Structures are given as structure tokens and as C-alpha cells.
Simulated scan of single mutants.
Amino acid sequence: MSDQVPIVIIGGGLSGIMAARKLKEKGYQDIILVEKSRSVGGRMATRRIEKGKIDHGAQFFTVRTEKFQAFVDEWIENANVKHWFGDDYYRYMSVDGMNAFAKKLAEDISVRLQTRITEIKKNTTGYILTTDEGEAINARAVIVTAPAPQAKTLLENDNLKVDTKVLQKLDEIVFQPCLVGLFQMQQPTNLPNSGHLDSELPEGVMRLVDHEKKGISEIPTVSVYMTGEWSKAHYQLGDEAVLEKIKQVTSAYIDFDSALSSQLKKWRYAEAVQFLRQPFLNTNQEYPLLVAGDAFLHSQDPANRTRLESAFVSGITVGGELVKLLK
């Protein structure tokens, strides 16, 4: 295979970013990270509302492995992240919003934003990837970090002839959605000083976050996260109808009469409720074609749930595996 053909990583969430960083660390420079959205980060997402900011994906991350702790310690030393709350079990936050930190992690990586890959086919040097604009991108190796249903769609191409056992493993991954109400407030809220509340909430509500109290917003902004079951039951409703229901169920905690604006974020693949106990899948093609993501948990993962750390570990591990395969 030609070293002149780039390595392409599909999906610019934390797994894709860390896979690219691992490859660059090992001397591979010709890497393209392809992301369908307007920014890298995936669920490390932050939205600007007037003079405010609002994290509306992952609010924080935790640490359960020594490998991840080593990176987090470095990030703390560099003042990129800090302890937010939790004395016995730390929750860490980005000091400038989760997306700003994702962008910092990806700042030395060649990124193609607002680019959706619709097809992967083999060619004589590896693969040819087709975008939704009809552009062809050559790749000598591919890592797919898109959510499992989207990854499976790409791998089902008859040209690839991916083993059905691999596709069946992707079918084992099941996601629940998450609906998040985003509110700009005229007055400060009565939420705890940390800005975070996730206990003794009404049925269907997962967490409430005040981003002014969190320390990333100049004005009061609030995100209201609904549970997977609630989100699944209401996913097909219109945005305004969902926002009204969110307001009704959380009105005892937030004075929505002082809300200046409201928006709804719909995460279709928010959290894997069924996941794989392996950090990546190898499709065993002639040229490397690997699949990874936060739903690919290491066999020794103590948390038993998907999170930013599982995305990190999967990305680092699949990047290391690709280094081996390319030698």
C-alpha cells in the first residue's frame, strides 16, 4: 500500500480525535479526520447563546483508569480542565466549555468538517470514500468511529464483503436517545452553587445544569437533560411540544417565566445501553478497516457503562492497533 495515501478517520468525537493523536505520536502525519457536523467533539458539545455558553452533551467526565488519569493530570496542569464537583469521586469539566477542549485536542489534526461519508469501497491502494457531495477521498486505512448503526450502514457495502459476524456485533450495540432543553434565563437560578443537580428529580428528568454557576457562561443558561426512556417516548414530537413538556415537569426547579429563549437538542445516539466488551472491531480486510467508539468498552473496564473515558480508551487502543497493522 502507498504511504502517499492518507489514513482517514470517520467521526470527529473523542474516539476519532484520540486515534488520530495516537497515530501522529507514532509518526503518521498524513491523517484526515472527517466529521459531518460543524465542529469536532461529538457529544463534547457547547452552544453559544447571546453572551452565554451552554454545554449540551457531556457535562463532565470521570476517571477510572490509570491511563486516562495520566492524561487528565496533564490537562489539569495545563489549565484545560478542572475539578468541578464530587469530593470522593471527582467530576472534571473543561474550563471553557466541553467543545473548546475537544477543539484543542484536535488542533494539530487535519479535519474536514460538514463532510458526510456515504460509501466505502475497496480500491488498489486501500479504499475510496465517497462524500455526500460526490467527492472521492482515497485512504490506505480507515477507522470508523461513527455510532454503530451508522458504521454498520457503511460496512454493508457488497464491495467490502465484511463478515456477517462483524455486522452482527454492531447490531448488539443499542443506543437510547437524549432530549436536552436549552434555556437562556433573565434571572439567576436557584440550582445548587455547583450548578449541577441530578438527584431526587421528577420522573423522566436526568439532570439540570446552570452554566453560569458552572463557570463557563457570562449569563444564566440552563440545560435540562431527560432520561433515555422519556426521550425515546417523546423523540418524534415537535421541538416546541417537547420544550413545553420539559418546562412543565421541571417548573418547580426553574422559573421559566424568566426564560428569554429556549432551544431543543436531540441526541439520537446519546448512550449505549447495550455495548461491546472490546475496545474496537477489526473487519479483517486486506487493508485496515477498524471500528471504534464509546460503545466499545475495554474488557477490564470497571464502569460497565459508556462515557467519555470509554471513548478515550477506545480511540487510543484502535490507534495503537492500526500502527501495528500498518507496519
Rank of each mutant, 00 (worst) to 15 (best):
Ser194Arg: 03
Leu325Lys: 14
Tyr92Leu: 05
Ala259Met: 08
Ile49Arg: 09
Leu129Arg: 00
Glu25Arg: 13
Gln263Ser: 12
Val40Met: 08
Asn282Glu: 12
Asp198Pro: 01
Pro188Asp: 11
Tyr235Glu: 11
Ala303Thr: 15
Phe175His: 10
Leu167Gly: 07
Gln184Pro: 01
Ala79Lys: 15
Ser37Asp: 14
Asp30Cys: 02
Arg112Gln: 14
Thr164Ser: 13
Val40His: 08
Phe183Gln: 03
Ser39Trp: 10
Arg268Cys: 04
Met44Lys: 09
Asp239Ile: 02
Pro6Glu: 03
Glu172Phe: 10
Glu218Trp: 10
Val249Phe: 02
Ala139Ile: 00
Glu77His: 14
Asp171Ile: 03
Gln186Phe: 07
Pro288Met: 00
Asn284Ile: 00
Glu244Asn: 13
Ile31Asp: 06
Ile216Asn: 06
Thr115Ala: 09
Ser2Met: 08
Gly315Ala: 08
Tyr28His: 11
Ile49Lys: 10
Asp132Ile: 00
Leu197Met: 14
Lys53Arg: 14
Pro202Gln: 05
Tyr89Phe: 15
Thr65Met: 09
Glu309Ile: 05
Gln236Cys: 10
Met18Gln: 11
Thr130Tyr: 00
Ala79Gln: 15
Ser217Pro: 09
Glu212Val: 01
Val166Ala: 09
Glu212Ile: 00
Pro6Asn: 04
His211Gly: 04
Arg64Glu: 13
Glu203Tyr: 11
Ala19Tyr: 03
Lys247Gly: 02
Ser39Pro: 01
Leu167Met: 07
Gly319Glu: 11
Val222Phe: 02
Ile32Cys: 00
Gln300His: 14
Gln248Arg: 10
Glu74Gly: 13
Arg112Trp: 15
Gly97Ile: 00
Lys213Ser: 04
His298Leu: 12
Tyr127Phe: 15
Pro177Leu: 01
